[in-house]
Every structure is written in structure tokens, then in C-alpha cells.
Design a protein around this nucleic acid. Structure first.
Lengths: 235, 235
DNA sequence: TATTAAATATGATATTTATCAGTTTTTTCT
DNA sequence: AGAAAAAACTGATAAATATCATATTTAATA
């Protein structure tokens, strides 16, 4: 192989772009961005960026998954987002010209493209389709954040675990065996729902006993979504 | 008095505009918007809009305060924002072209201006300063939402009450006597921190005993911010 | 102002969740 | 493969929080 086909692939031809705001860029803008982007491989467990870091651009996820978290005052990591192929991350710090308030760590091996800040800012200012698209994405994220806040504030840990299982089962392509397609530790799950690891483990066992899920090592099989939805709503 | 001076006042001269994204509009845009805006008085306790309602525009708060909340599955109202003079609300539903996911109720008598959707969309598309400003506002709201999620997920009710008292004391102009300048019921406070009303009342009494605050009827006097900050951080 | 309703307050108790301690299982690395 | 480390699990207990019941105070209003 004479060249790294990943590193030199073109944004104009990248299928991933269809899933995010970059789809609103013109051909010319894409060619320009393609010329200054860089590609990166992030190994499982490695950070894409850290809390407090100057990101200075956005990442477009070409492949893989990452967990985005924030450290709380009491020293526990709260996972706020799970990001996957097609998603963009870093646009907020870019727009506000601030260091990142979040940390992103690869859940499995990732391939990402990095686009420098200036290029994105330029297009946000000149291409109103692009900026409107970004606005829509943010408005939608804010709506979602409202829902998360309400759930965190009002639901029990059991309800939140049910929510999380439904969410993971829906959002991530399942494995061949039919289990949830994102391999998280029990600690990760606890850090998504905001509880102690032991509590998450106990409730998972509980759900297994009730045949709502099945557990085979790290694999989680969601068996009864309707019942999980009932639990989520407090029944 | 020959005309309602409130109803016919001009956006170009409105001081409130300085505090929000409308400051990025040009003179011409402001004159146009001024011509199609409408003014409204909302009495204490009345809704500005309801969950599920088509807002079809944005509200610019000229005076007064309102609480913005969302009903949770278990039937309790979670207050997500407190909005005051100079703030804008409704832009998210407008951008996403969706019904509101939130309810807004006046905490005291309010005076608001309503600007129809089409006018704002037009300016977002044509004035990149305006859209960048809106993007910045949303990016900042998202950052704030992250913090709220982490706090809700990880902090105890006591910590969240301390946070809320500090926040209310800082954000709202104090009364003449020096108490917190927004008059909320104990239930409202409970609905901000996400707990039962009784728990909020008990913790407030507790804080009073420890001389961190003083309570005189509905008035709350914050006495010891440093200690409240300690509590907020888990000490 | 008398009456009623709403808000605040407090006690008793049940439930939920965290913490600590320890065991077993799985994964990683040499 | 075998040792070491990490993750998963379980039990006992403490702490936090919700719920229910009821009393008291404050606000609303006829």
C-alpha cells in the first residue's frame, strides 16, 4: 500500500458527512476543508480530548464510539453523551472560544477527522445553511438536555437504568448475537445513570431475575422493552 | 394618556435588547421587527406558554420573572430555568419548528414582547452576526445544561439546595431588606432542586439552624455564602 | 373580619441508595 | 499458561430521601 488511504480520503466523498451538519457545506467548501483536515486513530481507552483542553477545531467521527464525560465535585465521572460514527464533537467549545468542559474517551478503536477552528468559523459566517443546520442541531441537543435534567432530578435509579438500557438497545447497532452493540463496563453504566457501581450491578441482576434482560459476561441482551418502558415510567 | 406607551414602544430604543442576541440586529432590522412585534402583560401565576403549545415566535422579557418547567413522567414539575428581564425565550422551538417542550409561568407580573417566527428566521438567515450570537448563546446554554446534569446526577439534595441558594442570591437583585429577590414557594424550590417539598423545607430549616440562611416568611436571607459553597462541594 | 384554602412545618416511618468489606470471575500481561 | 490486576458480584449496614399523617401558620377572599 503506497499511501494511507484513510489519512488522505476526501470529505466530498465521505459518507459519514451525510449524518451531520457538514452536509450543508458546498462542494467548494468541502474541498477546502478536505485539504486542511487531519485524520487520527484513537485506540480504545485513549482520550480524544481532556477537560480543560483547547480543542481548536471539531472532530468528525468516521468510525468507533466514545464516551463524553465530566468530573463532578465529588470526584465521580458523569457520562453525558455517547458519540458514534457520523457525529461531530467540539463545535461548542469552538463557538464559545473556550476550553472544553468535557472529556472524551474512546470506547473502542476510533477513526476521526479533525477540522481546524478557523475553517469552520469561516463557513459558519458565510454559509447560512450551515449555520442554520448547526443551530438546529444545538436546539435539538438543548431539548434533549432538558429531558435528561428532568429524568436525573425526578426518576429513581431503577427508572434511569431502564431508560438507559432502552436507549443503548435502540441507538447502537446490535452484535451478531443480538446483544447491545456498545461494550460498557458496569462502572460506565453507573456513570451514565448517576449511581454507585454496586447499585447498577444489583439492579442489573434484578432485571435479569425478572427476565427483562440477560447477562452473559459483558454482553447485555434486552429481552422485554415494553416492561422496561413501564419501569421507566414508574410502574 | 392618549396611547399605551408600553405597547407601542420601539425595539430600537429598548434597553432590554442590549442584554440578548437582538443587540446584533441592524437598525433596519430592528425597525422592521418593531413594527410587527406585540406586547403583552402576563399576571403573576399565569402561563406565558404551555407544554405542547405552538409558540410561533420568540418572547423578549421586558420586565418580570418566570419559571420554565417540564412535567416528568411521575407527575412532578421540574423547573429547568428562571428567566428574567432581558432574556429571550422560545428561540429553540422556533429553530426546530416544534411545539414547546416546556411550560413558562410568571413568578410576578411580567411585561413581554412577542416577535413572530418569520421575522426572526429571516434575520437568522441574512445576518450572520445575529446567527453567530444565537449560536454562542446556545453553546453556552448547552455547557450550562451539562453542569446541571452532572449536579443532578451526582450531588445530594443538600448540595443542590446550597447551589440553588447561592445561584438565586447572585442572579436576582436583592430586596431592600437584603433577601433573595425572587419570591418562590417551598414547592418551587423543591422543584428546582428535584426533591420532595418536605425535604426542601426540612433542609431549609436545617440551614437556618446552622445560621447559613435566615427565613422570615417567604423571604430568604443568605448569610454565609462561603459555607454554602463548602456544602455544595460535599464538605 | 370571618372563613376557607393554601403554604409551611414537623414527626414517624418506609424506601431507596451509598458505602464498606469481602469474594469470585474475567481480563491483561509476561 | 500462570500471575497479577481489574471488573463483577454479594452481603451487611448506614445514610439519604420519600411518603404519609397531621399541626400550624399565612394568604386569599366572600
Amino acid at each position: 500500500m503506497l499511501q494511507n488511504s484513510e489519512g488522505h480520503s476526501k470529505c466530498e466523498q465521505c459518507i459519514v458527512r451525510q449524518f451531520n451538519s457538514l452536509k450543508s457545506l458546498t462542494k467548494n467548501e468541502l474541498v477546502r476543508i478536505s485539504g486542511c483536515k487531519t485524520s487520527k486513530i484513537i485506540k480504545k481507552g485513549e482520550p480524544l480530548f481532556q477537560e480543560g483542553e483547547h480543542i481548536n477545531g471539531i472532530f468528525c467521527i468516521k468510525d468507533g464510539l466514545c464516551k463524553v464525560s465530566k468530573m463532578s465535585d465529588n470526584g465521580r465521572d458523569q457520562i453525558i453523551h455517547l458519540i458514534r460514527k457520523g457525529d461531530i464533537i467540539g463545535e461548542r467549545s469552538l463557538i464559545n472560544d473556550e476550553v472544553s468542559n468535557l472529556k472524551a474517551v474512546a470506547v473502542n478503536d476510533m477513526e476521526v477527522c479533525f477540522i481546524p477552528k478557523e475553517e469552520i468559523i469561516r463557513d459558519l459566517q458565510n454559509n447560512s445553511n450551515f449555520s442554520m443546520d448547526m443551530l438546529k442541531k444545538m436546539a435539538s441537543s438543548l431539548k434533549n438536555a432538558d429531558n435528561v435534567i428532568v429524568d436525573m432530578a425526578q426518576k429513581t435509579v431503577k427508572q434511569r437504568l431502564a431508560d438507559t438500557l432502552i436507549f443503548l438497545d435502540e441507538k447502537f447497532e446490535k452484535t451478531e448475537e443480538g446483544s447491545i452493540g456498545i461494550s460498557l463496563t458496569r462502572e460506565d453504566i453507573a456513570n451514565i445513570i448517576g449511581t454507585a457501581t454496586e447499585s447498577a450491578i444489583r439492579l442489573l441482576s434484578d432485571f435479569k431475575k425478572k427476565k427483562l434482560i440477560n447477562l452473559k459476561g459483558k454482553q447485555i441482551f434486552v429481552l422485554n422493552i415494553p416492561e422496561l418502558q413501564q419501569i421507566s415510567q414508574g410502574f
